[in-house]
């Protein structure tokens, strides 16, 4: 286990962040079953430590690039729950007034530069934001999250080479939850560690971290982000974790062996961290107060999101172009 440089207050913050993501995702799932959340959603249940650890290591103006499994990464950057939940529900008080949906959460004012649903596409885009930061000398870093299955698409490889040759301030984070959709990634990948074993091909260090240990994630994130900010170029981190729920929607995930699920539930990042904090001097009362406060927060966000309006025709033809409209002819 990594010795963390964080003090107890900061760790309570990491605990709270993970609890927020967990309770939010559970609520999103319930609302999906109740048909408030339509279409699809991809939950990060079990993977919260990665989002929480990285967000805590980022500067306020750093950039997040996420996938369709992006609720957690969006919330972790401080985006209000109501906006995210309302977006899932297709309401005007959603982050994008319902025009993006669960898979495309974006909040530029929080540095969340989009959630992308074409596998691998956002790795080159994150390079672009990093290139821009490098050119402008802004010191910003782009952090780009993706799954293990994503390491087999061409854009992944183009982006890594591109980031390496231009020494871009970008950190690639592979959340290796063992499964792509319904296929085990090891069965369709030439190497054991889908990201880490590819790193050397691009002159990068091979870095693997326990993605269920938020302290460890924070440390490795901070190191890579500091490095990028110092102009020392990109890093790629493979965080081992597990998707506790199915791939999307109401997928029960039956293709996974029961023992595997049980093994990873026993490594659930939140109870593990709860126990660690007690051992490090936090009190049960402090932690349950956090649980309770977050539950109230999720309830309030649910109410506010449900109270949002259904988008009207005014939004339909808006914002194709920068002038706010959609005219393609005179």
């Amino acid at each position: 286990m990594t010795i963390s440089s964080l003090d107890l207050d900061a760790k309570l913050g990491l605990y709270r962040s993970q609890v927020e993501l967990r309770q939010f995702e559970k609520r999103a799932y319930d609302l999906f079953l109740e048909n408030y959340v339509k279409g699809t959603s991809h939950l990060s249940l079990g993977q919260e430590a990665i989002a929480a650890g990285f967000a805590a290591a980022m500067r306020e103006d750093d950039y997040t690039f996420a996938t369709y499994r992006g609720h957690a990464h969006t919330l972790a950057r401080g985006v209000p729950m109501t906006g995210v939940l309302a977006e899932l529900m297709g309401r005007t008080n959603g982050l994008m007034a319902g025009k993006g949906g669960s898979m495309h959460l974006t909040s530029v004012e929080h540095g969340v530069m989009g959630s992308y649903a074409i596998i691998g596409a956002h790795l080159p885009i994150a390079c672009g934001a990093a290139w821009s930061a490098q050119y402008r000398g802004s010191g910003q870093v782009a952090v780009c999250f993706f799954g293990d299955g994503t390491t087999n698409i061409g854009a992944f490889h183009e982006a890594l080479n591109f980031a390496a040759i231009w020494k871009l301030p970008v950190v690639f984070v592979c959340e290796n939850n063992l499964w792509m959709e319904y296929t085990r990634t090891s069965e369709i990948t030439a190497v054991e560690h889908p990201a880490a074993d590819r790193a050397s091909a691009y002159g990068l260090e091979s870095i693997i971290v326990d993605g269920n240990d938020v302290d460890a994630v924070f440390e490795v994130a901070k190191k890579a982000i500091d490095r990028a900010r110092a102009g020392e170029g990109p890093s790629m981190i493979e965080a081992k974790t597990y998707r506790q729920a199915g791939h999307s929607r109401a997928d029960p995930g039956k293709y996974r062996p029961d023992e595997e699920v049980a093994e990873w539930l026993a490594k659930d990042p939140i109870p593990m961290y709860h126990a660690r904090l007690l051992a490090e001097g936090a009190t049960e009362a402090q932690l349950s107060e956090i649980d309770r406060a977050v539950a109230a927060m999720v309830d309030l966000a649910t109410e506010e999101a449900k109270a949002g309006e259904t988008p009207g025709a005014d939004l339909l033809m808006k914002d194709v172009w920068a002038d706010g409209g959609s005219a393609w002819r005179n």
């Binding site: 080159p124 885009i125 390079c127 672009g128 290139w131 402008r136 061409g154 183009e158 231009w166």
Partner: peptide
């Protein structure tokens, strides 16, 4: 070479880079 920059044969990376740069204030 900073403003007029050669790239590898990586068309997705070229256009991804242009997109990421445009969304963060440049005009590539």
């Amino acid at each position: 070479g900073i403003r007029v920059r050669d790239t590898p044969i990586s068309e997705q990376a070229i256009l991804g880079a242009a997109m990421g740069a445009a969304m963060t204030g440049l005009r590539p």
